[in-house]
């Protein structure tokens, strides 16, 4: 198996009317990773996926997927790719099973495929509805069929455009468990989502807004980037004096202290794993009694809001400092 990156995008640009599209996208996705593109509606997630699948040709820049230009994919390369579109699209007059078989045939899965079909049916919990006409199926069933059709041929590289939209939380977790399983088996997954929390399941997360990548990092990296470091919450037995807190901001590895209430503060630190000793020294020196202290993992919604807000602030005031909220 090749060790070249699955996807390389270099200054990739696709411009629609007004300011819509994707602009100057640089991306490098190693094989076997799960990469999420998160961003609000209209941020360019789907356009990015369509550029990577060859459904759109870029205006400028370049893109290489599995070593080929997507607009010139060979049939063999296409057979190694799975694409789940944002909208579930199949034939309403066919049953879910017939639609699944049609998708399997499109990708050249041999006709003796009953076992494979049954695996997909079981994985996606489609047993009760597999022989129902698609026009009678629920939205969730259509979505599951769409994912089954994307996975049926065992692709090396998956593009999943909002795969969990409209899916209940239990099934959503099941989807992500399977994505991780696929990743462990060597598949590469590019997933777009509006559920920002799903970024936590990924190896790499790209945050998009207005067609531009605001940040591309690991989930932990993004958290640090959003807040300027790790977050660490400290609860005091008695409210600390202001001078004590000023001294805390000057301690090594602490860049910011924000009041949460009278008895607690949130610290922005360089590394949450190494701040405990610094904190203990400070408490000892200042005679402050700590009730408890622990690393705070902010929800990705907050991370996302921070990054987008920071980008917007930078856009309106490019010279100004990026504001980070605690």
């Amino acid at each position: 198996m090749s060790t070249d990156p699955a996807i390389i995008a270099d200054h990739l640009t696709k411009r629609f009317e007004e300011e819509a599209g994707v602009f100057d996208l640089d991306l490098r996705v190693e094989r076997g990773l799960i990469v999420a593109l998160i961003g609000p509606s209209g941020s360019g997630k789907t356009t990015t996926v369509r550029l990577m699948t060859g459904l759109l040709a870029p205006d400028s820049g370049s893109i290489s997927v599995l070593g080929q230009d997507p607009t010139r994919f060979t049939a063999d390369t296409r057979a190694r790719i799975g694409y789940m579109a944002q909208d579930s699209v199949f034939f309403p007059d066919l049953t879910l099973r017939e639609n699944l078989n049609f998708a399997a045939s499109l990708f050249g899965v041999p006709l003796r495929r009953k076992r494979r079909v049954n695996e997909m049916v079981e994985l996606l919990d489609l047993g009760d509805s597999i022989d129902r006409l698609l026009r009678d199926a629920s939205g969730g069933e259509k979505r599951r069929l769409s994912l089954a059709a994307t996975l049926i041929h065992g692709p090396d590289l998956l593009f999943l455009d909002e795969p969990t939209a409209g899916i209940d939380p239990i099934l959503r977790q099941k989807f992500w468990d399977h994505f991780e399983h696929l990743s462990e088996q060597g598949s590469t997954l590019m997933v777009t989502t509006q559920y920002v929390g799903e970024a936590a399941f990924c190896d790499l997360v790209g945050v998009l807004a207005k067609g531009r990548v605001l940040a591309l990092d690991t989930p932990d990296g993004l958290r640090r980037r959003a807040h300027g470091g790790d977050l660490f919450d400290v609860v005091f037995v008695a409210p600390p004096a202001r001078d004590d807190l000023v001294a805390l901001t000057r301690a090594d590895g602490i860049s910011k202290v924000t009041w949460l209430d009278d008895h607690s503060v949130r610290l922005v630190v360089a590394d949450a794993g190494e701040i405990s000793s610094t904190l203990a020294d400070w408490a000892s020196q200042r005679g402050v009694e700590l009730e408890r202290s622990e690393a705070f993992v902010p929800p990705f919604d907050d991370v996302f809001v921070e990054l987008v807000s920071a980008a917007e602030d930078e856009e309106t005031d490019p010279e100004g400092d990026v504001a980070l909220a605690g």
Partner: peptide, 14 residues
């Protein structure tokens, strides 16, 4: 109209 053509374009279909 169904949007099936998107699947066709991504698949190895000729």
């Amino acid at each position: 109209q169904l949007g099936m053509t998107e699947m066709f374009r991504v698949s190895p279909l000729t």
